[in-house]
Structures are given as structure tokens and as C-alpha cells.
Amino acid sequence: MLHGLGAVYLREMRILKRRFKRHIVGMAISPLLYLVAFGTAMGTEARFDGHTYLEFLLPGLVAMTSMTQSFSTSTEINIARFYLHIFEEFQSAPISNVAYVLGEVLSGMTRALIGIVLILGLGAAFGVILHTGPWFWLAAALNAFAFSSLAVLLAMIVRSHGDQALLNAFVITPMAFLGGTFFPLDRLPEWAQNILYALPLTHAAQAIRGDVFGRPVVWAHFAVLVAVGAVVFIIALKSVGRARD
């Protein structure tokens, strides 16, 4: 049933490898700007959750990067569908939808991993070395799984490149800014907190930051990430058939 998964994954990795340098530079630019701009502007005096702003921001950037990098799978699939038409190779190959979706999801998770390592490296360059335990990596992996699955789902449903750009503008960018990346949520009014806790990224950011700061594990964050990931993955499986029209 999983036959073909390796081919789907390997293809994404070969493409990534071919433009790895460009990719790394592109991936580093915006976190670098945030670190320079916010990190230095906020200084070391102000305290956020009892930490300097840089210490607070970095785990948030990890969550955000694992989301944006895994979600960028949708752009790759779009290129494969509407520009290269190579997606037809997968449609006409004797492989199951599970193999296809898992192959793409794993490629998204790999991109997320590369992004996270890059953020940790940038953080170290700014003098902040994050403690990363198993819960950190689990939360990041679940977050990447959920957003890779969402990427596949949306890439199957959209009808053009343009639709894809709209999705990025309306779903991913707002979530990146609101999902607990840049500021502590407890400073917001309760109604706003309620809204933000409906976003999976918020839970990922909280779970990742919790591990970095050595706080006790909040199971609810992990439960939400698992539930969202499972539901989106299943819908993504169904959506592959919808791309056949």
C-alpha cells in the first residue's frame, strides 16, 4: 500500500538538493530580519514570560518556520500540477493515495526540520542556545505533519497558481503573525486569546516554548496538534481523487 512513497519523497528531495543554497538563503532572510529588528529593538531589559525577548522569540520562530516550511509543499505541488504537469506521473502510476500523500508530507516535514535547524543556528549566532528536548521535537514534528497535510489538501483543491497565492495571504501569513510567535498571548483580552487558541500554530508555539523554558508538559497542546493533523491528513487523502478532473 505504501509502495511509491519513496519515489514521491525522493523526487522532492532531489529538487530541494538542486537548489539547496538558494533555498537556505531564502529561508534565512525573514527570521534573520525578525531577530535583528525585534531582538535588538527590545533589548535585554524587557521580560517576556520571564525571559529576554530573543529567548521568547526564538521558539516562536521555530514553530512559525516549521509551519511555513512544511506548508511550502503546497507551492511545490502546484508547480508540479500546473506548470510542469509532472503530477500526471503520480496519477498514472500504480500507487495508492496514501503513498502519494505520505511521500509529500514527509518531504514537508523534512523541509521543516531543515528550517528548524537553521533557526537554532541563527539563534546560536545571536547568543541564544535553546534547550531542545523530546517534547520540543515532538511538537515541531506534529506541527509540520499537520501543515504538510494541509498543504497537500489545499494543493489538490486549488485550480491555479493564483488560488495558491490567496491561500498563503489569507491563511498562513495571518497565522504566522498571530499564532503566539511574536508576543505572549496572556497580554491579550480573553476573547482574542480564545480565537488564537483555535489556531493549531498557537498550540505548537506554546508546546515548543514550554519545552524550551523547562515548563511542565501541557497535554492539551499535543492533543490538539494530533487531532488537527489526523483530520487534515484524512481529508488530504480524499482530496487526491478530486484533482482528477
Binding site: 523526487r11 529538487i15 538542486r18 537548489r19 510542469l84 504537469h85 509532472i86 500526471e88 506521473e89
Partner: peptide, 11 residues
């Protein structure tokens, strides 16, 4: 073999 080109041009 489809009517249009469907190859991975970066590979």
C-alpha cells in the same frame, strides 16, 4: 506519453 511535455525540468 501525454500531448504536452510533463517532465521534471530541474532533474
Amino acid at each position: 506519453v501525454m500531448q504536452h511535455i510533463n517532465l521534471d525540468s530541474d532533474l
